[in-house]
């Protein structure tokens, strides 16, 4: 769901060790990279390395059908052109539904396919979904190993709050990191009363730096990145001058990393 805000189509690259996704947004301003290691799944099997090209917008709609207690199983057969999702609730109390529909075509303008709902007090909750797979052109090269000049670690909820609040006031934000202060300031005030910098040094902030860094970014993207905040209690902002910002959320057995190209000049 976090990825679908940034990219509409992407390849899930599956191998024996993990599932990975890496894709740029349509504007080629941001890049999102996700990895979920095999141990992060209750059960994981990959007999053959294969890409699963998925319409993330559609996948997100399907995921909304799941409840928190549902266990989601993703399956793709060899040479298959569909991704099969099965939601199976262990609790009989929430088990009166059976959904089944086939889904073909990736035309975003086509309506969400109709589905059939059968109710029975005894049937386990069983949502059976097929999403057609597409062949995408994946970005197979990993992001080059980059040594960043600064790393700011802060609670992800604070980061979410900061970028959300600042997005109410302007379109861009400057992030400056010096030895003891990280300053996140808006650039485009709507009125003089709102023109004061919003120095943000919440509790739990750790600043590591080799060199002063000052970069300007589009707030819209940072707000979208911050939607991943529920995946991790902390977020890391890694920056060097004149290279993309890395916003990194690490979670058990995986991560989501978002890269954002800076504004040029000032």
């Amino acid at each position: 769901k976090s990825c679908s805000i940034l990219v509409t189509d992407a390849n899930f690259e599956c191998n024996e060790e993990n599932i990975m996704l890496q894709a740029m947004d349509n504007s080629h301003i941001a890049l999102v990279s996700v990895e979920i290691g095999a141990p992060g799944f209750t059960s994981y099997r990959c007999d053959r390395t294969m890409p699963l090209g998925v319409d993330l917008t559609s996948l997100t709609k399907v995921l909304r059908c799941a409840k928190d207690e549902n266990i989601c199983t993703l399956k793709a057969a060899d040479e298959a052109d569909v991704l099969n999702l099965v939601y199976d609730a262990k609790s009989a109390f929430f088990s009166p539904f059976f959904f089944a529909f086939m889904w073909h075509g990736r035309d975003a303008s086509s309506p969400f396919p109709p589905f059939f709902l059968l109710c029975s007090a005894l049937l386990p909750l069983f949502i059976h979904l097929n999403i057609s797979l597409s062949s995408q052109t994946p970005i197979t090269s990993s992001w080059p190993e980059t040594k960043y000049d600064t790393r700011v670690t802060l609670p992800s909820a604070e980061f979410t709050r900061i970028v959300r609040d600042l997005s109410q006031l302007g379109e861009h934000v400057r992030i400056e990191v010096s030895k003891e202060v990280v300053r996140i300031s808006k650039l485009k005030a709507k009125s003089s009363a709102e023109d004061e910098d919003n120095d943000s040094i919440p509790t739990g902030v750790v600043i590591e730096m080799n060199q002063h860094v000052s970069l300007t970014f589009s707030l819209k993207y940072l707000v979208n990145f911050s939607k991943s905040g529920s995946l991790s209690g902390e977020v890391q902002l890694l920056m060097s001058n004149d290279v993309p910002l890395l916003v990194a959320y690490d979670f058990t057995q995986g991560y989501i990393r978002c890269y954002l190209a800076p504004k040029i000049g000032d």
């Binding site: 740029m24 301003i29 090269s141 992001w143 890269y259 190209a261 504004k263 040029i264 000049g265 000032d266």
Partner: peptide, 14 residues
Amino acid sequence: PAPQSNISSYFKST
């Protein structure tokens, strides 16, 4: 506003 750079311009061929 300052021009926006392109993320792909930071890629290096690997």
